[in-house]
Amino acid sequence: MRVVIAEDSVLLREGLVGLLERFGHEVVAAVGDAAALIAAVAEQDPDVVVADVRMPPGFSDEGLRAVLELRAARPSLAVLVLSQYVEQTYAAELLDQTRCPGGGGVGYLLKDRIGDVTQFAGAVTTVAGGGTVIDAEVVRQLLRGRRDPVARLSPREREVLALVAEGRSNAAIARALFVTEAAVAKHIASILAKLDLPPDADDHRRVLAVLAYLRAGV
């Protein structure tokens, strides 16, 4: 998989390159600011972009803006945004402005998650494959904002809902909760029914529906 990395800290940038190459991804460019990111994507035409929110020259949200610009120009480009802080505001902008039929995968993760290298590499693969990966912290905040009818879910169902919203597949949820895939499927059917969401076999569409539902209540 061809990856472009945009991260202004040299230490982290080189670490990310090593990490992704270790997992068999091909890092075609690693840059340190938003302008270079846009140039690198135009030149390399990668499968997925991994970008830090905050980058030079302004050190505010240049990375996020560049990613949104790239997505607007090429909706099929998969993007994974990393941030030192998880803020719903940024997550909402990313999800709102990248939602379109046939759009590429989207991810928003805390930088802390890089430490779990296997899971992080998996997230890059998921996003590159058109999936959605949302940080558990964002999901926690979204769930906290909803009282009804999320409150009617059983504790187990809330756990499952959180993992669905993070973008995990049924198999991954089963692994995380030490249950069978069949049990996960049953929980999901029950959750969707309680929330009045249409059942959907497609993982990605389901994630988007759940996220849209959770965000509508905040």
């Binding site: 800290s9 230490l11 982290l12 670490g15 090593g18 270790r22 290298v117």
Partner: peptide, 24 residues
Amino acid sequence: ERDLHDGAQQRLVALSMKLGLAGL
């Protein structure tokens, strides 16, 4: 905030990443 963000935070992320890679 800027100093912590550019310094300690990035180093801690890098540390945690190196630990993760070493674990492999």
